[in-house]
Every structure is written in C-alpha cells, then in structure tokens.
Nucleic acid binder design. Structure first.
Ligand SMILES: [Zn+2]
Ligand SMILES: [Zn+2]
Ligand SMILES: [Zn+2]
Ligand SMILES: [Zn+2]
Lengths: 131, 131
DNA sequence: AAGGATATGTAATGTCATAACATTCAAGCC
DNA sequence: GGCTTGAATGTTATGACATTACATATCCTT
C-alpha cells in the first residue's frame, strides 16, 4: 500500500476529506492556521505528494483540489469530473469508451499523452432550477 | 455572421492567430504594448468576447488562450485539445462518440452541463523522443 | 440633442503558485 | 555514540494569473 502520510500531508488530507466542495490551496491554508501552517508552500508540497499518491485530484478549471472519491480504486485510468457550479459537489467517473476513443485519436496522431483532463461544469440534479 | 471586431478585439485576435503556441493574457498584453494597450483588463475583455464568439479557446490546464483552428465550424460541439508540452502546438478535434458518452452520463445523473473541458497534455509526434 | 448601451482607460487589489535558502528530522552506517 | 544522507519542513520573497471599481469615450437610436 501507500506509505504513511507525513504530518502536513495528513492535515491537508483531513481538510479535503471533510470538505463539501473543492478547496483552493489558500483556503486549505486558512483552515490549517491553528495547526501551525503559515505558508502556501507547505500546502502545495503536501498537495503535490497527495496527488502523486492518487489521494487528491486537482481540478484544472477551478484551480482547486478535491479528495479522491474512490481512493486506490482508479490508480491509472482516465477520470472525468462533473462539477456543480451551484453547490460545488463533484462526481468522479470513468468511461472505458471515452478512454478508448481518446486513445485512438492519440495513437492515430502519434501523440503521446501524459495527462488527460475531463471536467464537465454545470449544475447537478439537486441544483437544476435553483440556478 | 459574427459582428465586426472592435479595435482591441482585433489586436488580440491577430496576436493569437500569429502565435505558434497558446499565449497567456499577460504575454498578449506585452506584445500589444506598442499598440497602446496598457492594462490586463483590456486583454481579458477582448478575450472574453472572442471566446463567446468561438474565435478563441481558453486552455484551462495552461491558463492560456489559442485561436480557434476551425472558426465557425464547431459552433456548439464538444471540443478536445491535444497539447504538446514540448513545442506548445495544440490540435483541436471533436468526437461524437465521446460526446454521446458524456451526454449519456449527465442525463443518467440529472446533471445539466454548461461547459466541458477535455485537454490531453503530452508530446506530439514531432516531439516524442526529444522530451 | 438626449438617452442608453457598449467599449475603453486606469489604478488598485485579489487570487494562485513557485524560487531560493535555511533548518529539522529520521534512518542507516562507522 | 557520532556521522552521513535524503526527505520533510519552515520562512521570506517574488512571480503569474485574474477581477473590482470607477471614470470616460463612442456609437446607435429616438
Ligand atoms: Zn479519484
Ligand atoms: Zn449542485
Ligand atoms: Zn475551435
Ligand atoms: Zn511538440
């Protein structure tokens, strides 16, 4: 399994796990002032490691981070995110057909993919109508 | 067709059209100093309009902008980007199957999508090996 | 000419992320 | 124990991306 987390990584992980919506690095920092964190870099370093371990995802269209909803389940597959712009809730899912189609395109174009981002922004079922 | 562009929109559009790779708003600003632009907002406002018109795309994973490769061709469809991290070249493409699969997921989950981002980062055929 | 909508100019500020350097900590070896 | 070494941490400063707020100008319609 994955190695134990360090102190700062544990603090950041707990903050993200307890959050209802994605958090920016600076929001995480604010919530951890009382635990001794003072500088952005302390949070960014923890986020980097947690992301490497697959415990946290970065949402590119939000410049924010979420705890993985299925830790240790989708180590290497393609993940898509549905992000509600009203309540902030994020759903993760994978789709083999989407993956195959994108893989097909990259192969056909001799493109070597390193990281793929799929983010759908909109409103979740509970928020449609309220927005 | 689309309305004529304003002065600032024209300047920004020309800069992006002539670029080999995505440009950040501040890079665009730097290239337009001699044309009288002084503040980021002048560029951001033009980019907003150009994006609305479909002439420019924002790359979320890069915080940068590119001229559309197929203006007036894909007004409303889902667009995917393959971005070379070595040479910066960006390829746009659409895939109906990917669109259908993502639409299927959102319908099944009562999610109302507003904007979908698909960005594949990696290395293009010409750059594989050099990186 | 008057009014309203759109576009522009400018300064200040807010938000996100990293560089550079010093210090501390834990583990393995002599 | 005392040493080395690599990882993690702490701190300051800076860089990069984006928006708020307000003033002014321009264009189009009446
Ligand atoms: Zn996940
Ligand atoms: Zn919602
Ligand atoms: Zn396009
Ligand atoms: Zn390339």
């Amino acid at each position: 399994m994955s190695a134990d987390l360090t102190r700062n990584q544990t603090l950041v992980m707990k903050t993200l796990s307890g959050a209802e919506a994605p958090l920016s690095a600076y929001t995480i920092l604010d919530r951890l002032r009382d635990d001794g964190l003072r500088a952005p870099l302390q949070v960014y370093r923890a986020l980097d490691k947690l992301t490497e371990m697959g415990l946290v995802h970065r949402l590119e269209s939000l410049n924010a981070f979420v705890a993985c909803a299925h830790p240790n389940c989708h180590q290497q597959e393609l993940i898509a995110f549905a992000i509600c712009e009203t309540c902030g809730k994020v759903e993760e899912f994978s789709d083999e057909v989407v993956k195959d189609r994108l893989d097909g395109w990259t192969r056909a174009h001799s493109f070597r993919p390193a990281k793929t981002t799929i983010e759908i922004r909109g409103n979740c079922g509970g928020c449609v109508g309220k927005a």
